[in-house]
């Protein structure tokens, strides 16, 4: 897919990663009050780990190394989705079916404000990379129209 232009692959990797981050944020917000999960206990907030990802194929890497352009094309990838280790939010609600003997219910360690801020950041990063795709497209178009 990066035959024509590797920049598309870089931007696409970022779009994929940011979309995954949005998915995780959506899941956190949707489960902000979930007290029962398959693993038992309340839902735990999750977050994504971003890492730089070397793009090209072996062939492209070799060519790049020969030309002295190695290590420029680096996209991003989600390498893990990990649980937030902070303890659950304890709310006193003796009538709740999941309350412990002391009358406290363990709610997920999700902070909606934090999630919303994260949501905005992910959206902006996504938009920035859409702009990269558009700019790349325009550049390719103008290059294709060189003819005099």
């Amino acid at each position: 897919m990066d035959l024509l232009n590797p920049t598309f692959a870089i931007a696409a990797s970022a779009l994929r990663a940011e979309r995954m981050r949005l998915d995780v944020i959506a899941s956190n917000l949707a489960n902000a009050s979930t007290t029962r999960t398959e693993a038992g206990g309340p839902y735990r907030r999750r977050h994504v780990i971003f890492e730089t990802e070397s793009m090209g194929s072996d062939f492209a890497d070799t060519i790049a190394a020969l030309g002295g352009t190695a290590d420029t094309q680096r996209g991003v990838e989600v390498t893990a989705v990990v649980d937030d280790p902070t303890p659950p939010r304890m709310v006193f609600d003796p009538g709740h079916p999941d309350a412990n003997p002391e009358g406290y219910v363990a709610y997920p360690n999700v902070n909606p404000v934090l999630e919303m801020v994260d949501l905005m950041a992910a959206t902006r990063a996504y938009e920035a990379n859409v702009q990269v795709v558009n700019a790349t497209k325009r550049m390719a178009e103008s290059a294709l129209s060189i003819s005099g």
């Binding site: 590797p6 920049t7 931007a11 420029t72 992910a122 990269v132 290059a143």
Partner: peptide
């Protein structure tokens, strides 16, 4: 010169792809 701009575009795209990657140094 077009090549130079193309390469710079690649580098800027890499920076923007990693705008949220912890520890990434802009190039």
């Amino acid at each position: 010169a077009l090549d130079v701009h193309n390469r710079r575009h690649d580098v800027l795209a890499t920076n923007l792809a990693n705008v949220e990657t912890p520890g990434f140094r802009a190039q």
